[in-house]
Computed example of a mutant assay.
Amino acid sequence: MRVYLPCTLPLLARVVTAKELGPAPLIGYAVTPALTEWYASGDTEELEYVALTEAARGSLRMLAADRVDGVDVPARRVVIAAEVADDDVSTGTDLRERARVRLARSIPMEEIAAVHVDDPSAVDDIEAAVAALPAADKGDDDARFTVDGAEAHELMWYATQEMSDLVD
Rank of each mutant, 00 (worst) to 15 (best):
A135F: 07
A34C: 01
G70S: 12
A129R: 02
S41R: 11
G70N: 11
F145K: 14
L47F: 03
L26K: 07
A114M: 12
Y39P: 06
G139F: 03
V115F: 05
A113L: 14
A152F: 11
E83L: 10
L103P: 01
D119K: 03
R67T: 14
M163S: 04
E110Y: 00
A64D: 10
L21Y: 12
A18C: 13
P33V: 11
A129Y: 07
T91Y: 09
V84F: 08
V89F: 09
P6A: 05
E97P: 01
E111P: 03
A132L: 02
G42T: 06
Y4A: 01
A150R: 03
P33E: 14
A159F: 06
P25H: 08
A143N: 05
M156P: 07
R2D: 15
E127H: 08
R144W: 01
A40I: 09
V84H: 07
A99H: 01
D72A: 13
A113Q: 15
E111W: 06
T36H: 09
L47Y: 01
K19E: 15
R76F: 09
E20D: 11
R96D: 15
E20R: 12
D168N: 11
E97Y: 06
L21D: 04
S106E: 15
L52V: 08
G28F: 04
L35E: 00
T8E: 04
E20A: 12
L9H: 08
A99F: 02
D140R: 02
D72N: 13
R14M: 14
L103I: 06
V101Y: 00
G28L: 02
T93E: 15
V73G: 12
L133R: 03
R102C: 11
G28P: 00
E46G: 06
R98S: 13
A82G: 14
L63E: 07
V16T: 03
Y158N: 07
A113K: 13
A75W: 10
I107H: 04
E83Y: 10
P33M: 13
L155E: 01
D66N: 08
L52R: 11
G139A: 08
L60D: 05
L155M: 08
R14L: 14
V89N: 09
T91Q: 14
V117L: 05
R105I: 04
Y49Q: 15
K19N: 13
L52M: 13
L47V: 11
A136R: 02
E46V: 06
V68Y: 11
V3P: 00
L95R: 13
D69H: 08
L166M: 07
V15T: 09
L35F: 02
L60P: 04
R67L: 13
P6E: 10
T160D: 13
Y39H: 12
R98T: 14
M163Q: 06
R144V: 02
R2W: 15
V130S: 11
R14C: 09
S41P: 00
T8D: 08
A56D: 01
S164R: 11
L35A: 07
T53Q: 11
V84D: 10
S90E: 15
Y4H: 10
G149M: 00
